[in-house]
């Protein structure tokens, strides 16, 4: 019994410590943004890498997400005969919820994991120490550009991915639910889902922020050589997934309260 309590206590403390460390990192990154103190070339490099790395998987994910949502709602619609709801149902779910989450998770697996591995390798090969020895603050030089790139890129990728999800939905509606593409897209359009679209984009930005802080934290605190890097990547992906769901919940709640 005491052992269980003690284990619970240790884990809780560990979790609080982790959250504290990430909050501190977020604070240091934010402080480096005003006034801007980060390397322009490194920032450009981060934007380029983040964007190029992730757009193919985001588009793939989005196409199938749209398709799945249409198949699911199509099943229900076929029973009830409410064909005109397919576009609304699929569009609503994709834009406000499923799209941003799945795109965020894929982004985390690709870009976040890669970032942790890259920073972790820099730590164990003393490249981060080398930056410090050259009077460069690693937070400014490494974390801030990645932070900016991930927020902006996940925002843009969510915007783009949403469109591809609708295309995927339209194709599926045409082929499998017998709703012509044009009709489906008109339904989506008529449903006036601009609010949901914006909510999704807001979520995407917050997911980008969460993935950036989590992946930078795990990368910059790697210990123990190459195996340590592997462990950190693993932990970062799990933590980022949790962070995405937590952020999704809070953005959703705040949005609902504010839009009343």
């Amino acid at each position: 019994m005491t052992r269980v309590v003690r284990a619970l206590g240790t884990h809780t403390l560990g979790l609080l410590e982790l959250l504290g460390a990430m909050a501190l990192l977020q604070l240091r990154i934010t402080r480096a943004l005003f006034p801007p103190r980060y390397d322009a070339r490194e920032t450009w490099r981060a934007f380029y890498k983040v964007g190029v790395k992730s757009y193919p998987i985001v588009i793939m994910t989005a196409l199938f997400t749209g398709a799945i949502m249409v198949i699911q709602s199509g099943h229900f619609v076929a029973k009830s005969g409410a064909t005109s709801f397919v576009g609304w149902a699929a569009g609503f779910a994709v834009l406000a919820e499923i799209g941003p989450i799945l795109i965020g998770l894929m982004f985390s697996g690709r870009v976040g994991a890669n970032n942790t591995a890259e920073l972790g390798t820099m730590v164990v090969t003393e490249q981060v120490d080398a930056l410090r020895a050259l009077a460069i603050e690693p937070i400014h030089y490494l974390a801030v550009p990645r932070f900016l790139a991930m927020i902006v890129m996940l925002f843009l990728l969510t915007a783009l991915g949403d469109l591809f999800a609708l295309i995927g939905g339209a194709i599926t509606a045409d082929l499998m639910v017998d709703i012509p593409m044009k009709v489906f897209l008109r339904q989506v359009f008529d449903a006036q889902l601009l609010d949901e679209y914006l909510l999704g984009l807001l979520k995407g930005s917050f997911f980008g922020m969460a993935i950036a802080v989590v992946s930078c934290h795990y990368g910059l605190t790697v210990r123990g050589g190459a195996t340590g890097v592997g462990r950190a990547v693993n932990a970062a992906v799990v933590a980022a997934a949790i962070a995405i769901f937590v952020a999704d919940f809070f953005v959703g709640v705040v949005w609902t309260v504010l839009s009343k």
Binding site: A130, L134, A135
Partner: peptide
């Protein structure tokens, strides 16, 4: 600390070269 380090040069035993930069960029960096 950065101002003090501006007055120092440090050679690492394990090189600690930036692997994403070529040799010229590494040396040019400071």
């Amino acid at each position: 600390l950065a101002r003090v380090r501006d007055r120092m040069g440090f050679l690492f035993q394990n090189y600690a070269l930036f692997d994403f930069m070529d040799v010229g960029q590494n040396i040019a960096f400071p």
